[in-house]
Design a protein around this nucleic acid. Structure first.
Lengths: 258, 258
DNA sequence: GAGTGGTCTAGACCACTGA
DNA sequence: CAGTGGTCTAGACCACTCA
């Protein structure tokens, strides 16, 4: 009926279902609908948008496929609790993995600095030099042994509350994850030889191979945090499963047909 | 109408669209429908399966989302050409990346062995000891400098043609990719200190940190190949982009709602 | 022009499960 | 029981593009 209805905001050429998906997505990623919050039922959305149920179903199905919501018959749809950060890549999630294996987990904050972003900070985090950042250095221990060294920057313009959090009791990663739903992350994985400081922190030999996972996280194009996690190479590896083509990524639309 | 129609083979409880998707998927992954081959139109499939167009549309849409087919109005649907192996993880694809950067690429086969799988081979590749395997060792050069050392096993029961291929002119990865559409891959990423042989192959110092990407590839649960790619740590890193939850993976259905 | 996919409709039945 | 999502139907109009 309302083919020409005004689409609430941006006059897009999006199909109806994509428009609906975008609006819900925004409500979720902006934090307006927190994890666990109930999403309106298909029936409600049909009434709200004035379209057929299959249309809202397609929008909701895509959100479910993207992992933003979970759906259950009779119970309804709910904003998903953010997946555990590292498990996305099926990277060993330090704390959760350790605890689920019945191992002891401990976290030690080595340093905390509140500062205006240096040029190096700005490059790492993707903010402008001078922007307020929180720098944290810490070590994760599993069963008493150092497991990973963490070096993190947090964009305080995006997460001002972080300024007042006591990160000696909560891991920055865990806190951020619970606070900020992220919409995009980039991992860079590399190998380095441990320098003196890292060797000391991880209690390994100088020069031992370390696996470094650098992660930048964004919420709607705003940088949230950047973290370097360095693991002793011999005690750690990352695992990832894939199917052909996976998700289409931004710059990789390489489809062709003859 | 034919709610009870016989589903061609396995008496599954799958919904109709999933059944259709599975059949098409099998035709593609088995190689029966080679890349570029035209997929029957929605109209044809509606006639064939005797269901509504939306149902086959859902099956085809999922295949397109999974990257197995590409679809174009008027032109029809086609089996996708297999995506470039490594670009899946946005790993630097050695040859393609080098060439697209205008750099020289060269490949050198160091060793080739046809043998019955040893116990170690069997564990690496996931076949039974004694199964025929082809072992290949090689080095990839970019701009004249060694870029990665490759150590590969190929399951000859799955890819008998590999026995007769001259891998001094074609890279095993490139050949396999063109031959065998894969349905699943697992990457293991770790860091090691270069041993003497690797230091020699990559022309780096003994003990230098190396990034090792181990990849196992399956076609419908049949192991195809296993490869260890070792890169000099300082010259290489992997990059991966993610959105929340990404694709649901086999063992990671950790969704919960309150 | 005609065939294709992209989207949408206005219904329908069913399975599941919380109240 | 009643509400929810999962699936399906039998149509429809449109945009695109090849012949």
């Amino acid at each position: 009926m309302n083919r020409t209805a005004v689409p609430s905001c941006d006059a897009a050429k999006l199909p109806r279902y994509a428009e609906i998906r975008r609006e819900l997505e925004h409500a979720i990623l902006s934090g307006r609908w927190p994890p666990g919050r109930r999403v309106p039922s298909e029936h409600d959305l049909v009434a709200w948008y004035g379209c057929a149920r299959m249309t809202v179903n397609k929008a909701l199905s895509e959100l479910a496929a993207a992992g933003l919501i979970v759906r259950h018959r009779r119970a309804g749809s709910f904003v998903a609790v953010p997946a555990n950060d590292q498990s996305i890549l099926e990277i060993h999630d330090i704390e959760a993995e350790a605890r689920s294996d019945g191992k002891a987990y401990r976290f030690e904050l080595l340093g905390r600095a509140l500062r205006k972003a240096t040029r190096a900070d700005a490059a790492r985090l993707g903010v402008k030099p001078g922007a307020p950042v929180l720098a944290l250095a810490s070590v994760h221990f599993v069963d008493g042994a150092p497991f990973a060294a963490e070096d993190r920057l947090i964009n305080l313009d995006a997460v001002p509350r972080a300024r007042d959090i006591d990160f000696t009791t909560r891991t920055p990663g865990g806190w951020l994850l619970a606070q900020i739903p992220w919409s995009r992350a980039r991992h860079r994985i590399s190998a380095i030889n441990a320098d003196a400081a890292m060797a000391r922190a991880l209690r390994i030999a100088r020069g031992a191979a370390c696996l470094v996972v650098s992660r930048e996280t964004w919420q709607q194009e705003v940088p949230i945090t950047q973290v370097d996690l360095s693991h002793s190479g011999e005690s750690h590896h990352l695992v990832a499963h894939f199917s052909p083509a996976g998700r289409r990524r931004d710059g990789s639309g390489k489809h062709r047909q003859p």
